[in-house]
C-alpha cells in the first residue's frame, strides 16, 4: 500500500505535459545510445546527429507550429502544401525574374505566404467556426494545386547569392571525425539549424512565460472555462493558426535553403510527420497538453528511427514505414497507459 501511495505521489507531482516529455526524452536517449552501442559505425560520429538536425530543421520548425495549434485544440494539415508552395514561389522568384531575384525579398515572400495561409485559415476556424480539419485540408489542396500552377516542373536554383547562403556551414569545434583515409572532417550545421533552435527557444519561452502562451493551454484544455477566465478564446485560436502559418512559411524557406530547388512533390506528407512528432513529443490532439521541447525530441526520435532502420541492414524500403508505424503505436500505447494509470492513482 505504501509503495502505491508513493508512486501516486510522484505521478501527481509531475504535470501531464512534463510526464509525457520525460517519457519521450528517456525513450529517445535509450534508442540513440543503444544505436551507438549495437550498431556503432556512423552513429559513433557526432556528425550523424548533426546530419539529423540538418535534414530535419524544416520539420522541427513546422512541427513547433503544429504543436501550438494542437495545444490550443486545433489541427493544421496544410503545412506540407504551404512548404511546397513557398519553395516553388521563392525558386521561381529568384531564378526566373530578369536579372535574378533578391534573396532577402524571397524571404519576405516566404513569410508572406505563410502568414496569408495562417490568417485566412485562422479566421475561418476561429471566427466562422468551421472545423479546422476541413479548413486546413482545403488549404493543403489549395497550396498543392497552386504550386503546380506557379510552375509545373521541378528545377534547381542556380542564383549565386542564393547558393552562397545555401552552402554556408557553421563548423563546430572539437566534434569532427576522421574518415577512413585519415582526413579530418569538421562537424558542421547549416543555417537552418540555427533558425530552428532559435524558434524552439522562442516558442518555448512564449508558451511558458507569456500570457498568450498560457492562454493556448487554457483554450485547448477547456474553451468554456477559458472563456470564463476572461480569455479571448476566438482570438487565441486565430493567433495559434497565424503562428502555425508563419512557422510553415519559415520552415518552407529553411526547406528551400536545404534542398535548393522548387518542386510540386516537395514536403509530401510533412504534415503527417509533424503531427507524428508532436504526438511522440507528448502533445495531445485533444488540446491543453504539450511541450515544444518534447516536439524537438519527437522530430529527433522520428528521424533517428529512420536512420537506425536504414543502417541496421533492413534494406527493403518497406521496413521504414512499418517501423515508424510500430514506434508510433508503441508511443501512443505508452501515453494511453500512463495517463490511465495516473488517473487511477489519483482516484485511489
Amino acid at each position: 500500500m505504501d509503495k502505491k501511495k508513493l508512486k501516486g505521489g510522484i505521478f501527481n507531482r509531475i504535470s501531464d505535459t512534463n510526464l509525457l516529455l520525460c517519457i519521450t526524452i528517456v525513450i529517445f536517449l535509450i534508442m540513440y545510445i543503444s544505436a551507438i552501442v549495437f550498431l556503432g559505425g556512423g552513429f559513433k560520429k557526432p556528425q550523424m546527429f548533426f546530419n539529423i538536425l540538418n535534414n530535419e530543421a524544416p520539420l522541427i520548425i513546422t512541427a513547433c507550429g503544429m504543436s501550438i495549434v494542437m495545444i490550443s485544440g486545433g489541427i493544421d494539415i496544410s503545412i506540407g502544401g504551404v512548404v511546397a508552395l513557398v519553395c516553388m514561389s521563392c525558386a521561381v522568384y529568384i531564378d526566373k525574374t530578369p536579372g535574378g531575384g533578391n534573396v532577402w525579398v524571397s524571404m519576405l515572400i516566404a513569410l508572406g505566404i505563410g502568414l496569408a495561409f495562417g490568417i485566412v485559415q485562422g479566421y475561418l476556424v476561429a471566427y466562422c467556426e468551421i472545423q479546422p480539419f476541413i479548413v486546413t485540408l482545403a488549404g493543403m489542396f489549395f497550396a498543392r494545386g497552386m504550386t503546380t500552377i506557379v510552375n509545373t516542373d521541378p528545377f534547381n536554383v542556380e542564383n549565386s547569392a542564393f547558393r552562397k547562403l545555401k552552402d554556408t556551414r557553421i563548423t563546430i569545434p572539437k566534434m569532427g571525425s576522421y574518415t577512413k583515409k585519415g582526413l579530418y572532417q569538421a562537424a558542421y550545421i547549416e543555417i537552418g539549424v540555427v533558425v530552428a533552435i532559435a524558434i524552439v527557444v522562442v516558442l518555448f519561452l512564449v508558451l511558458r512565460y507569456t500570457k498568450l502562451g498560457r492562454s493556448f493551454y487554457a483554450v485547448g484544455g477547456n474553451p468554456q472555462s477559458a472563456l470564463m477566465l476572461g480569455i479571448n478564446v476566438k482570438r487565441t485560436k486565430f493567433l495559434s493558426h497565424v503562428i502555425c502559418g508563419l512557422m510553415a512559411g519559415i520552415g518552407g524557406y529553411v526547406y528551400f535553403l536545404h534542398v535548393g530547388s522548387g518542386a510540386p512533390s516537395h514536403a509530401t506528407g510533412m504534415e503527417m510527420n509533424a503531427i507524428a512528432s508532436s504526438i511522440i513529443g507528448g502533445t495531445m490532439l485533444t488540446g491543453g497538453v504539450g511541450n515544444i521541447i518534447g516536439t524537438l525530441f519527437g522530430v529527433l526520435s522520428l528521424s533517428s528511427i529512420q536512420n537506425i532502420v536504414s543502417s541496421a541492414g533492413l534494406g527493403q524500403a518497406w521496413w521504414t514505414g512499418i517501423t515508424i508505424g510500430g514506434m508510433l503505436c508503441l508511443f501512443l500505447l505508452i501515453q494511453s497507459i500512463v495517463m490511465w494509470a495516473k488517473k487511477r492513482s489519483l482516484k485511489a
Binding site: 489541427i75 480539419f133 503527417m272 503531427i275 507524428a276 504526438i279 490532439l285 524500403a317 518497406w318 521496413w319 521504414t320 514505414g321 512499418i322 515508424i324 508505424g325 510500430g326 508510433l328 503505436c329 501512443l332
Partner: peptide
C-alpha cells in the same frame, strides 16, 4: 485521427 495515423504511415509499406 492519431490512432489511424499509425496505419496511414505503415499501411503502404505493409
Amino acid at each position: 485521427m492519431i490512432a489511424t495515423l499509425i496505419l496511414f504511415t505503415a499501411g503502404r509499406s505493409i
